[in-house]
Every structure is written in structure tokens, then in C-alpha cells.
Design a protein around this nucleic acid. Structure first.
Lengths: 243, 243
DNA sequence: CGTCGGGTTGATAACTTTCAAATTTCGTGG
DNA sequence: CCACGAAATTTGAAAGTTATCAACCCGACG
């Protein structure tokens, strides 16, 4: 198998030029393959036994449920992303994780990870970089919810997803496949599904983006970036930093 | 000086029983003391030279400015908190950091930190725990903005601040000193300052909390927890985990 | 063929912002 | 200690944004 076909390799390559040994160490982490059906819960809040995964294919979401029953999706994970890396440290998970589509993921034993970090320290740095980037995205999501209106927020969200997917070769500025329902979108954007529907219509009518039958199609990428106030600096790494 | 007077020591003690050597290693990190006046910028977005600090006294906020000029405060830092730990890894800061009050902070050299982690591995774990807790708080803040209305959100925020301050001995369930203006509160809560004002009035009139002249006074802590849907599990560590 | 999970639309209600202005608080210099 | 100006708080009214409720449509699927 070509290494670049592994999303995690592809993602880390954007940050560090990896040697063949390092690449195969990553490939190694991907034994222990698991398959999950759509809608399956991987981690429940309060759960003790913590497992970490690398997502190979499919989409996942992590969210919190409020006492009132509404939920807020904190983040979606796409191929190449880690699941539950952080919460391994906590005794109990502080949120739920659920598959959005059928998913292939590799279970990562903490011991394996530590061992490969010991052998290939640059790998540790690269993974830490990935974790920092994830945190930066949560922060950007927070800004979305706090200070962007529904239109900007939705636009920004679609653009950010695009940027992330590009890192693993699953999108271009022309568009991408997106398996999210308007309900999922709503729970991520802090809106009602009905309002999301209207906003998507507005974006369509303005000739900016289309989102139909699982496909996001950008009609005017530049104008959308402008509308959303999208800054990709925290996602773009023009070229690998770690040589 | 009594170690427990150092907020970082006090905070980490909630997580790990630290030996005398470990304690003094932490105290050691606090040489290189710096003082900053109120309203001073510590880190600017896009800045290259990254510095990390531990806050010894005073309050700080980290925020993002949108193209429209509005801002969203991502988090406040209080004594015992790290500043800029994560962004040291990124080449450029992705947000601004500014003092809210006069501040005393110790500059931490990455090399010093790594050295003390090498000597005292349990310290590394404790700090990592603190970082995870910080991330959990950002997530909770995100949920605030996405799915709680202004009243719940404000109540939740005041309670969370209380829980954090308790860890460093600066609050009780009776109340605490809080140097935040309603403008700062508004930028953190994703509301207008005017609305914050009204919400605070409502909370006062319901007999739940008062927030006047820099003091938060809880009148009915239990009822407030109920209203806010406040879950402190992610903050409470009933007793040290690492023995 | 009926059901079910999306998606779509309209009407109404609730929440929050914006604008404008008055009042209070607070730090500073006299 | 007082006066002054700047900053923060408070209030009202009007406008804008988003949620909620109630339908209806449509395609997939057993």
C-alpha cells in the first residue's frame, strides 16, 4: 500500500518530512483495525475504560449532552484524526463520541504510541503539532459560536472542513463529499436544523455554496472566504516546518 | 515561603501528592519573575517569538479579533495557570493574550521545563493533566456559547470561574473577587455588554448571585447550579489520583 | 404500500442586539 | 479632601436574529 493513502501519514507530511522508517512506524500503528457501523457510540461520557483511535475512513463526532437534552457537537473527526487521545489521561471521558458514517479506525495502545515516540522523536513532535492544531480548531469553533452570525458561521464551518479535508486529500476548493445531515450541522453550529436549512438556502441563492445530497460544491470560493472572514493561517502550513 | 502559597503548587496538589523535591522543582520554575501592568499585551496574533509563563497573581485573557472588529475571549487565566504553553509549538501565535489586571508571571524556558520533567516525570503527568483540564474548560465554554441561553450561560460561567478559583484557594461557594468588567464578560460570553447587564440584574433579582464592585457573591449556590446545569465532574478531582 | 429519516416552508414567539442617553464609580491631579 | 473626566453601569425603545410549532414533500427501504 502506498503510504500516502494513509490519511495520518498524509496529514503529518504537511508538517514534517518523514523518513521511510518514520512512515512505516505510522503504518505500524494501524494494525488492530476495527470497524464500526453508522450511529455507533465509541465512547460515552463517564466511561472508565479509555481507548484511543486513529480514524482511517469515515466520519465521527464528539459532543456533549445538556441536562435539557439538547446537544452541542464539539468537533467532527475525519480520516487521519485522533480520537480520545486527550481523554486517555483523564479517568473518565467528559464527552460522548459517536460515528456519523460507517467507520474504519485503528485502536492505538498507549504503550505502542510511547514506544514509537521513543524510537522516532520527530514523530512525537508531529503528533503534538496535530494535537495543537486540533485545539486551535476547537478555539475557532468557539469563536464561530460566540461572534459570528448564522450565515458567517455556516460559511466558516464549511470552509474549515474543506481545509481539513484537503490535508488528507479529500477535498479541493471546488468542493467535497460531506455526509452530515442538517441536524448534525445544526448541533455543531448551535442553531436549529430549520434555521440551518434557511441559511443553506441563502448561501445557495447568493451563488456561494451548494450543499445537496452529501456534496458541498463551492460556486464562489473567494467570496465565501470573504463573507466568513475565514483565516486559514492556523491550518495552512505552507511547507513542512520540521525537515 | 510556604509552597501552598504558590498557586501552581496548590493546583497540582489537587491532582497529585507531590514530594518536597517536586514541590521545590515547581518553585524553581518561578524564578525569572516578570511584572505586567493592567491592559498590557503579552502575545499578539502572528507574533513569532513565543514565550510561556506561569501566572502567579492577577488575571489575563486570551482572545481572537474578527475582521469585523468584534472579539471573542476564549479563556481567562488565573493564578496557577499556564500561558502560551500550547502555542510555543506553533511558529506563530494564533491569538492575542492581554492582562486584565496588573500581573505577576514567571517566564518558563522550554529547556527548564523539559529538564524538570526529566528529573520528575510525575510532574510532567501533573502538568499534562492541567493542560487537559484547560482544554476541557474550553470545550465547556464552547457548549456555553452554542447551547445555553444568556442566563444559563452567565450562571455557568460564574460557577466555573468559582470552581477554578477554589483550586487555588481564591474562592469559596460563598463567592470571590472578580476583576472583570461587564465588557469583558460580554466578550467572553458572546453577548453584548448591555445584555450582560440585564442578565446580571435578573440573576440578582432572582436572589441567585450578586456581582458588584469586583465581587461575586452567591446568594443561593444550589439553585444557581441547578439553573446553569453545572456539572463540575471535569473540574472536581475528589482526591489526588497520582499518589 | 406504509413508514421513517431527511429536507423544505410559513407563521409566530422568544431572545438578543443596537442605538441613545442618563447615572454611577473610580482614578488622578489640584 | 475635593473636583473632574474617563470608564463602567444602567435603562428604555426599536430593530434584527433565531427558535419553535405545524405542516408538507420526497426518496429509501422493508
Amino acid at each position: 500500500m502506498n503510504d500516502a493513502a494513509i490519511p495520518l501519514v498524509r496529514k503529518l507530511m504537511a508538517f514534517a518530512v518523514l523518513s521511510d522508517e518514520e512512515n512505516s512506524a505510522i503504518v505500524d500503528l494501524h494494525r488492530r483495525r476495527r470497524t464500526f457501523q453508522k450511529g455507533q457510540t465509541l465512547v460515552s461520557e463517564g466511561e472508565r475504560e479509555q481507548r484511543a483511535f486513529v480514524l482511517a475512513s469515515g466520519w465521527v463526532c464528539s459532543y456533549k449532552i445538556l441536562p435539557s437534552g439538547t446537544r452541542q457537537i464539539v468537533d467532527f473527526q475525519i480520516p487521519g484524526d485522533f480520537l480520545g487521545l486527550r481523554s486517555v489521561l483523564f479517568r473518565t471521558a467528559d464527552h460522548d463520541i459517536e460515528t456519523v458514517t460507517k467507520v474504519e479506525a485503528s485502536e492505538i495502545l498507549a504503550s505502542d504510541l510511547i514506544e514509537s515516540f521513543r524510537k522516532y522523536p520527530r514523530l512525537a513532535t508531529a503528533v503534538l503539532w496535530a494535537a495543537s492544531r486540533d485545539e486551535a480548531m476547537v478555539v475557532e469553533h468557539l469563536v464561530d459560536l460566540g461572534r459570528r452570525n448564522a450565515l458567517e458561521r455556516t460559511a466558516h464551518f464549511l470552509l474549515e472542513l474543506c481545509a481539513r479535508l484537503q490535508l488528507v486529500g479529500m477535498a479541493t476548493t471546488a468542493g467535497y463529499s460531506c455526509p452530515l445531515s442538517q441536524y448534525l450541522l445544526a448541533d455543531a453550529l448551535g442553531l436549529s436544523a430549520i434555521h440551518v436549512n434557511r441559511i443553506l438556502r441563502q448561501l445557495r441563492e447568493k451563488g456561494l455554496v451548494q450543499f445537496h445530497q452529501g456534496k458541498v460544491v463551492f460556486e464562489d470560493y473567494e467570496a465565501l472566504v470573504e463573507l466568513a472572514g475565514f483565516e486559514s493561517t492556523y491550518l495552512d502550513q505552507p511547507e513542512p516546518i520540521l525537515l
